[in-house]
Simulated scan of single mutants.
Amino acid sequence: MIVGTVKEIKDNEFRIGLTPAGCHALKTAGHTVLVEKGAGEGSGFSDAIYKEAGATLLSKREVFDQSDMIVKVKEPLPPEYDMFHPGQILFTYLHLAPEPALTKALLNHQVVGIAYETIRDRNNTLPLLSPMSRVAGRMSVQLGAQYLEKQYGGKGVVLGGVPGTEPGQVVIIGGGTVGTNAAKMAVGLGAKVAVLDMNPERLAYLDDMFGGRVETIVSNSYITAQWVKKADLLVSCILIPGAMTPKVVTEAMVKTMEPGSVIVDVAIDQGGGVETCDKITTHTDPIYIKHGVIHYAVANIPGAVPRTSTIALTNSTLPYALSIANKGWKKALQDDPGLAKGLNTVDGKVTFKAVSDALNLDYTPVEHIL
Rank of each mutant, 00 (worst) to 15 (best):
residue 219 S to I: 12
residue 184 K to L: 11
residue 72 K to T: 10
residue 301 I to N: 12
residue 317 T to E: 08
residue 12 N to D: 14
residue 283 H to V: 00
residue 291 H to F: 05
residue 46 S to Y: 01
residue 25 A to K: 14
residue 325 A to R: 07
residue 366 V to T: 15
residue 126 L to V: 00
residue 192 K to D: 07
residue 220 N to M: 13
residue 248 V to W: 02
residue 199 N to Y: 04
residue 130 S to F: 09
residue 21 A to Q: 14
residue 27 K to Q: 12
residue 272 G to L: 05
residue 355 V to S: 05
residue 122 R to L: 08
residue 92 T to D: 05
residue 168 G to L: 14
residue 236 S to E: 14
residue 242 G to Y: 08
residue 322 L to T: 08
residue 178 V to N: 13
residue 176 G to P: 05
residue 314 T to H: 08
residue 268 I to N: 00
residue 260 G to D: 10
residue 236 S to R: 00
residue 61 R to H: 13
residue 133 S to K: 07
residue 205 Y to T: 14
residue 51 K to Y: 02
residue 269 D to G: 01
residue 307 R to W: 03
residue 324 I to D: 01
residue 348 G to W: 03
residue 112 V to S: 07
residue 145 A to L: 05
residue 24 H to P: 01
residue 87 G to E: 09
residue 61 R to L: 11
residue 181 N to T: 11
residue 5 T to C: 15
residue 208 D to L: 14
residue 340 A to P: 05
residue 163 P to G: 08
residue 251 E to H: 02
residue 188 G to L: 07
residue 126 L to E: 02
residue 67 S to M: 05
residue 107 L to H: 10
residue 280 I to V: 15
residue 276 T to W: 02
residue 105 A to I: 11
residue 83 M to H: 01
residue 78 P to L: 12
residue 266 V to L: 11
residue 7 K to G: 11
residue 77 L to F: 00
residue 146 Q to R: 15
residue 9 I to C: 09
residue 262 V to N: 11
residue 92 T to E: 06
residue 114 I to N: 02
residue 45 F to R: 12
residue 145 A to Y: 09
residue 369 I to W: 14
residue 242 G to W: 08
residue 191 A to Y: 10
residue 317 T to I: 02
residue 346 V to W: 06
residue 73 V to S: 02
residue 176 G to H: 08
residue 133 S to I: 10
residue 364 T to G: 01
residue 328 G to I: 10
residue 316 S to D: 03
residue 209 M to V: 13
residue 254 V to H: 00
residue 230 K to E: 15
residue 7 K to P: 06
residue 86 P to K: 15
residue 355 V to L: 09
residue 197 D to F: 03
residue 290 K to D: 00
residue 168 G to Q: 14
residue 130 S to R: 15
residue 113 G to M: 10
residue 295 H to I: 00
residue 309 S to Q: 02
residue 229 K to S: 07
residue 368 H to W: 03
